[in-house]
Design a protein around this nucleic acid. Sequence first.
DNA 1: TCGAATCAGGCAATAACCTGCAACCATGCT
DNA 2: AGCATGGTTGCAGGTTATTGCCTGATTCGA
Lengths: 249, 249
Amino acid sequence: MLKEERHAFILKALETRHKVLTIELSQSLGVSEDTIRRDLKELADAGRVKKVHGGAVSHSLNPFHYKDREIYAHEEKILIAEKAKSLIRPHQVVIMDGGTTNTELARRLPPDLKATIFTNSLPVAVELTDHPSIEIIFMGGRLLKDAQVTVGEEVVATLSGIRADVCILGTRSLDAQMGITEIDWEETKVKRAILHAANESIALVIPEKIGTVQPYIIGEPGELSVLVSTLARRDPRLRPFHEMGIEIL
Amino acid sequence: MLKEERHAFILKALETRHKVLTIELSQSLGVSEDTIRRDLKELADAGRVKKVHGGAVSHSLNPFHYKDREIYAHEEKILIAEKAKSLIRPHQVVIMDGGTTNTELARRLPPDLKATIFTNSLPVAVELTDHPSIEIIFMGGRLLKDAQVTVGEEVVATLSGIRADVCILGTRSLDAQMGITEIDWEETKVKRAILHAANESIALVIPEKIGTVQPYIIGEPGELSVLVSTLARRDPRLRPFHEMGIEIL
DNA sequence: TCGAATCAGGCAATAACCTGCAACCATGCT
DNA sequence: AGCATGGTTGCAGGTTATTGCCTGATTCGA
């Protein structure tokens, strides 16, 4: 068995299976795990696969590979994005935060919409590059690898020089008492700045996040203008927000 | 048994079997393994087969033929990226420009490399988010949709506050007299700033770009530190650069 | 936090490789 | 015929690649 054959086998397996395990490969190819490990290392060094503990996963070569990631509650997020896209009016200046729901919205903006969008989210920016008429301003800073957003004082400073019409917040947790809360301190500071740099604020949120609380507070619930979820307008979970005068969608 | 006959036999065998082993061939053709090895070497030099340890495989088995047509001269760019990745030393501060070759490099950086990378390129940043130990600073600004890089005074301002160890320029055109030149004015300004913000500058360039000129000048050829291409070190096209004291890789 | 799984690096054995050399052969010239 | 030439082949040797095993470190999941 030539090394190249094994490599071809591994790549083939990854095309269909997305993930391979070292121990599986060693059994089906009849070589030691060490050899497989070395194979995976070579393939990883060549950028053909991504090595993970216990095996490897396919490393799709185009820059949109984050699309492959399994998105939690994807269907719901698509629904929310579809609802929300009418909220952005032509020629507005918009700040878009990160998050999968916001990315979904960026992908779904009407092609004829003309607007200026500030964002600190890599995926949102990538999606918007496909849009024909939106002007994109990316706010620089240190990049958080898991959230794929920039943070730090540079982002905050940029935001302090903006007065946007509307911001669209990625919402980790929303509670009628505590408001919008976050788990990451750096992101919190940025989101606060986003909230304060816009006249109106829109939160896109899947129902299960409503009523949960994280350690850091971004803003009072009353600071929200519009809340978009998959819930019916009269759902009791939304009642307190409605009573504060927040528009429910 | 003539050499040509053996070559024909080997190619025929590869058509049907995908791989051949040196030992097998030597037995079925009744010649020494060394002779087969020499045959394979000739066929490989002629590009008819791919030589591997233990024998040879047909070209269709090997990667590049069916993958990634979308990136122009992708193979060459991979080679260049592989060459260049050793140029980034641990704990350096690096500025990475946009371009497909640079993206390729970003994808191929050794996973154990610890470094800080400033970039204004969306694809580069996306690739780097998969890297375990690199700190990424994204330089914000207006996003050019086709090049997927940010431009504008904000980027230039950020760069003016940086003194990096090395910058890696995406190179549209390189000429021994005119130096590095660009076709887009906005990008030109940013690239100038990148060049001036780093102590050393590395240009990754595919051979066909050497000797071409665009309207806007980014820098003198002498401002380059290292030139990475697929050409042999002694290639006449590189001679003028070598004589300027630019390191050729 | 702990135990088990997994990993990285080193080591040795084997196989494959490359280089130089001498033998061989066909050819063409003197 | 005699000889030089160039191409090819096999062999000896020293070098490199590959692999499995081992050990200690790291990482993961409970």
